[in-house]
Simulated assay, not measured.
Amino acid sequence: MEKILENRKKFVDEVIESLEKEKGLVWLKKWGTLGPPFNPTTNKEYNGNNNLMLSFRGMQKEYEDTRWLTYKQAQNNKWQVKKGEKATSIEFFELYDKKTKKQFDPKSISSLSNKEQIDYKNQNVYSCAKTYSVFNGEQIDNIPAFEKPKIEVNYNKIDKIIENSNVPFFYDSENAFYSSNKDEIHMPHQKFFKSENAFYGTALHELSHSTGHELRMNRNIHNKFGSESYAKEELRAEFSSFFIAQSKGITYTNEDKENTKAYLQSWIKALKNDPNEFFKAGKEANKIANKVLSYENEKQPSMKDLIKTKEQIEEKGR
């Protein structure tokens, strides 16, 4: 774990430096047009914090390739990491079994009762963090040329997400914000944004905030502007909107986002006070993004319905 904390501190120091130099989050530049980072040998996308770390490194190095793989994976395919290239560290958490001293296999306790399975996991299974070193496709010789994905933004699908959220949107404000007391999102009209993508990126950011309502994901969202707790929630919404935008092909720049000095300073302060806050935010943002993306295919209950359901549950519990 010590190595992971050391790698995290080093990475967050670079993020803070980019916030101070770039006046915004460096990975916003164009990564959405390339799609999420993925492993070409498994064809699986990197999620959560690994997505953020690889996207950051990709934009920092101005890579046009979103493929990342280990040295061994490259060798197995007769590709060769270029001399002098430095790897990027990512993290994976695996479950281990104290009793068998091997990676935990759920099938090994499938014959036990539910209570016995819970007791076994509590007594014997633990999470173990591991780091892996990966290289970008542009750092590797003989790898097939990267074919940039043709990503077309389907704004109808994003409109469907907004519609199905059942969170009221009002285009009547100079600034964009989510009111947790009224469960409403207020924004400037779309014509006042620098681009269509900037408008939708902001809408998804505010929609991410709305998931924090106590009857949805129940986060601490009643925070004073400029406070550290406010900065933490802003990071969660920012990372979430990035994941969603990346998934839907939306791209926008820091200029589009119009990050204010106050926002940036609050983020920097929060990360300097606790470097691990970046990774806490990334983990939570992944859950937030998945929830918002699920709206596309499922109409969400209104706040009135959520309150009614809560009251019914409380009534049954009496």
Rank of each mutant, 00 (worst) to 15 (best):
E228N: 07
E2A: 05
T131Y: 14
H189F: 04
K9V: 02
N197H: 15
T309L: 13
E315N: 14
S173C: 03
E45I: 14
N49K: 13
F93V: 15
E284G: 08
E238Y: 14
I118R: 01
K3E: 15
N142A: 05
I90N: 09
S179W: 07
P36M: 05
K44Y: 03
L28Y: 13
G226E: 13
R216V: 06
K150F: 08
Q80C: 10
I109N: 00
F135H: 10
E277D: 02
N122I: 12
A74Q: 03
E64C: 08
L54C: 02
A245L: 07
K10N: 03
K21V: 10
E14W: 04
A129V: 05
S195D: 10
N51I: 05
D159Y: 07
R8D: 06
A231R: 00
K287G: 15
E138T: 01
M187F: 02
G48K: 01
E214V: 11
E45V: 12
N156V: 09
N47D: 15
N124D: 03
R8S: 09
F279N: 09
K283T: 14
D141C: 03
Y295D: 02
S229I: 10
G84E: 09
E94M: 14
I151V: 04
E85R: 01
Q190T: 10
S127N: 03
Y46W: 05
K83H: 04
T33S: 14
K148V: 13
Q265A: 09
E233I: 00
S113T: 09
K191Q: 11
F56S: 08
L34Q: 09
E6I: 09
E85G: 04
E2D: 07
S113W: 04
E152N: 15
E64G: 10
M1Y: 15
V125W: 02
Q80H: 10
S18Y: 04
K23C: 08
S247N: 13
S208M: 06
K194F: 00
K287I: 13
T100H: 11
S294Q: 01
F278R: 01
S111A: 14
N49P: 06
N124W: 05
S18D: 05
N154G: 00
F243W: 15
E255V: 09
T100M: 13
D97Q: 10
E152L: 14
P188K: 05
Y132P: 12
T260N: 09
T42P: 07
T88F: 01
R236Q: 04
N114A: 15
L112Q: 05
W79Y: 07
Y178D: 03
Y96K: 05
A262W: 09
F170T: 06
G317H: 15
Y120S: 02
N297T: 11
E116F: 00
K99E: 14
L235Y: 02
H186E: 04
Y126H: 04
V153W: 00
V292Y: 00
F193G: 02
Q73H: 12
Q117R: 03
V167H: 04
N181F: 13
Y63E: 01
Q103L: 15
W31A: 12
Q75G: 13
K232R: 05
A87R: 03
E255G: 08
A270N: 12
Q190E: 14
N43R: 14
D119A: 07
F192A: 03
K23Q: 14
I16M: 03
P144Q: 00
F169R: 02
L306I: 06
V15R: 11
I90T: 06
K182W: 01
P106K: 02
V26M: 13
G58H: 09
